[in-house]
Design a binder for these strands. Sequence first.
DNA 1: ATTATTGCAAACAATTTGCATCGTT
DNA 2: AACGATGCAAATTGTTTGCAATAAT
Lengths: 132, 132
Amino acid sequence: MTDPTPTPRGRTSAKRAAIAETLAGFEDFRSAQDVHEEMRRADRRVGLATVYRTLQAMVEGGELDSLRSETGEVTYRLCSGSHHHHLVCRVCGKALEVEGPAVETWAAATAEAHGFRDISHTVELVGTCSDH
Amino acid sequence: MTDPTPTPRGRTSAKRAAIAETLAGFEDFRSAQDVHEEMRRADRRVGLATVYRTLQAMVEGGELDSLRSETGEVTYRLCSGSHHHHLVCRVCGKALEVEGPAVETWAAATAEAHGFRDISHTVELVGTCSDH
DNA sequence: ATTATTGCAAACAATTTGCATCGTT
DNA sequence: AACGATGCAAATTGTTTGCAATAAT
């Protein structure tokens, strides 16, 4: 349970902190490019490559959740902790986190029924929210 | 129920047929590039762009199922008809179609509970099959 | 003939990588 | 000093598009 190194990868750095901060300012999933552009806007410039590298590192470090948008880009968001799924509005991009105990169960059962191990599942609900 | 035009888009063509045939020879999901390469191998050459265009058209025509691989490429497979989900082996790529009435219900209910309309859902189960 | 389909190359977009430099330790 | 972090530009990868040549109707 003891983990003296919060994120056992590399050194600390202002850039890295800035990226994390920027991310904290978002509610829903954003692409590396989005983050990069937002930082430019806020005069907290960082190289695009650095954003990509950092975001990847954070995902591996379990600090971020990532998923692919419908157009294929990888998007990130600080993860809240427990396992959940997303309900995304196709018009405004608003994303809600939803719990899906039923899905978890079904996934596990289905996998086992077919002899699969180490199952991981992705569930994405896309629809039009009430504002549109 | 009557649909005299199997695929109401454009003209018929040998190339198109060849692509469909090639696809029929596959069991699991393949990328446009995979299809292209396979056709080259079988001496049924077609331009890569044509493969992309045709595959997209077939998806829109409801003849193909498509999903994104973990690496982000779009992959295709002839679809068997009814709505279903996939259980893919992360090692060999073997893909099984699975029914998920529970998921359908949950998706609809969740969406409605949050005021979303025109919901569509994506469910992907990735695991290691019994052969590995 | 008319118009959709193809191929090829150029254009693109997202992401990655090489490498010299700079910041942490 | 030693080594990870960063920036920038060049390289990749997957996919799209413009356009002239070709095939289907």
